[in-house]
Amino acid sequence: MASNIDTLAQEIQGPSPAALLRRRVFGHYGLLFGVTVLIVIVALAVLAPLLAGQDPYAQSLVARMKPPFWMEGSDPNHLLGTDHLGRDYLARLLYGARISLAIGLIAALISGLIGTTMGVAAGYFGGRVDLVVTFLINVRLAMPVVLVALAVVAVLGGSLQVVIVVLGFLLWDRFAVVMRSSTLQVRGLEYVNAAKAIGCSTRRIILSEIMPNILNNLIVVMTLEMAHAILLEAALSFLGLGVQPPTPSWGLMISEGKQMMLFEPWVIAIPGVALFILVLAINLLGDGLRDITAPENRS
C-alpha cells in the first residue's frame, strides 16, 4: 500500500495553482514579449511631452525632410528626422502612440460593452433573444467594415471622436460571438443551476456567477479587438478618411510619407514599424492570455 500513500503525497505536495500560473506565464515567451513591449509603448506615450522635447505640430521650412540618426546628414535635434513640413518625426511618433492607444482602448471598450451585452443575453436567455442576436451578428458580419466606416466618417467628418465611436459601433461582432458561446457553456454548469435554485435574481446570476467565469475570454477578445481597431484607424487615416491632419496619427504619417517613399523609404518605414510592433505586442498579449487560460493547456 506504500505506493498509494506516495501518490497521495505527490498530489498534495505538487505545485499550487498560483505557482502553476506563474510557471505558465513565465514559460510563455510570446506573452512576456507582448507585455514588455506594450508597457514600454504605454510609458513612451504617457511620457511623450517629456521625451519628445519638441512640439509635434511645429513646422519649420528650413528643417524639412531631415534624415533619421542612422543616415548621413542627420540632425541631433531630430533623432528620427523631420517630415515634409519640418515637423519632428520622433515627437509625432510618440504623440501618435497616444492616438493609437486611445483609439484602440476606447473603441474596444465601446464595442466590448455592446457585444458583451448582446452575447451574454443571447447565451443566457436563448430562444428568441438568441435568434435575434445571432441574426444581428450575421447582419453586422455582412457589412463591409472598411467601406461603412469610411462612408460614415466621410459624412460625419473625420475627427478623433467620430473615428473612435464609429469603430466602437462596428467592431462588436467578435465580442458577441465569443461571449454568446462562453455564456452557453457556463449556463449549463451546476453552480449556475444552484444559484437559480436558491432564487437568485437574473441580474445577480449574470453579474456574479456568469461574468467572472467568462471574463478571461472577454479580456482576450478585448486585446484582439484593440489591435483590430488600431489597424483600422490607421487604414482609415491612411485613406484620408480617418483622423485628419495635422493630428499625428501613424496611419496619417504613412499616408503623408507616401509621396516621399520613392526617395526616402524611412518616412513610411518608421511609423509602419511602430504600428506593426504595437499591434504585434497586443496580439501576442492576447494569444498568450488565451494560451495560459485555456483549460487544455493546464497540464
Binding site: F276, I277, V279
Partner: peptide, 22 residues
C-alpha cells in the same frame, strides 16, 4: 501567421512597392 496578423496591409503594400517596384 503572427507577423501577418500584426502587419497593416496598406503598409505591407507600400513596403512591397518600395522593394519590388522601386
Amino acid at each position: 501567421s503572427v507577423m501577418g496578423q500584426a502587419m497593416p496591409s496598406f503598409w505591407f503594400g507600400l513596403v512591397l512597392i518600395v522593394i519590388f517596384s522601386i
